Simulated assay, not measured.
Amino acid sequence: MIRTIIGGIAIGIANIIPGVSGGTMMVILGVFNRVMDAISNLLKRDNPNRLADLLFLGELLLGAAIGLIGFAKVLGYLLSEFEVQTMYWFIGLIAFSIPVFLKAEVKGKGKVKGLPTLIGMAIIFALVYFNPGEASDVHVVYPDVSVWLCVKLVLIGAIGGASMLLPGVSGSMVLLILGEYYLFRAYLANVLLFQLNILIPLGFMGIGIILGIVISAKVCGYFLKHNHDATISFILGLIIASTLVLIPLDAAYDMNLILTSFISFAFGGVMVMGIEKIAG
């Protein structure tokens, strides 16, 4: 139970940062297929493991909520003060997860196909191309709560939730492209104020996120079952490209920054190897 909650916290933290994928974090933690199966089977009439699936998803969602809410401000500080090192830490996590992913999904089951891999990479590069870039959430103004706002947030949450589940695809980056990321992060960072103009919109966005996750899991589960090699290759392309696009090319590198960035990258790799060893 504790292990699942901690994994959920890591997934929640990953989903806060534009460019970092919660789905990739699931791959790193070795729970991607378990999550797909649990969500996909949850609504089936004949599912003897429904209670176990519910408990597993509940623990994971609890951890994700803790990660999203509890670390929104912490990560804001890290990205503000140590942006390059923080990004290289995540690059290390993602890069070292690729062999883990291939070992789990390809070895003895199939082979990687070139075209689906390239398509997956192209989607990530397209997301980065349409990324509106940096902006400030310091002066976010909460909109008035209305029916239209609630419907809009359900739709936005569904899109973000669907993208959060795919390895390599950053749900936060998708929200950034939609122009709703900074409002979403402001809601999360201030949820403990318990103001209705924050809780109500966040609740409707949460409903949308759950719907998006369920739909995404159903679709992904179907393709994994009926076209395993192409789907795995597509996901591999997403992961590879997400590693490349996170590299801070515009940073002012000096010897100190290079050294600390390398240490952060290596730390990410050590974490992946440690998690793989614990997972057995």
Rank of each mutant, 00 (worst) to 15 (best):
M1W: 08
R3Q: 14
G7I: 10
I9R: 08
I13F: 03
A14G: 08
I17S: 10
V20T: 03
G22Y: 03
G23L: 07
M25E: 12
D37V: 12
D37F: 09
S40F: 14
N41D: 15
N41H: 15
L42R: 04
L43G: 12
N47E: 15
R50H: 01
R50T: 01
D53I: 02
D53G: 02
L55F: 11
F56S: 13
G63L: 06
A64E: 01
I66K: 03
G67A: 00
L68P: 15
K73E: 05
V74Q: 04
G76W: 01
Q85R: 12
Q85W: 10
T86R: 07
I94K: 06
P99F: 14
A104W: 03
V106R: 03
G108Q: 06
K109C: 02
K109I: 00
G114L: 11
T117I: 02
L118D: 01
G120I: 02
G120N: 00
I123D: 04
I124E: 00
V138E: 11
I156F: 06
L166N: 00
L166T: 00
L175C: 13
Y187H: 14
L192P: 07
L192R: 10
M205G: 08
I207A: 06
I209Q: 09
I213M: 11
S216M: 05
V219T: 05
Y222L: 14
L224M: 14
D229K: 14
A230T: 15
F234C: 09
L236A: 13
I240E: 03
V245S: 00
L246H: 00
P248W: 05
Y253Q: 04
M255A: 12
L257V: 13
F262Q: 08
A266I: 15
V270E: 06
M271H: 04
G280L: 06
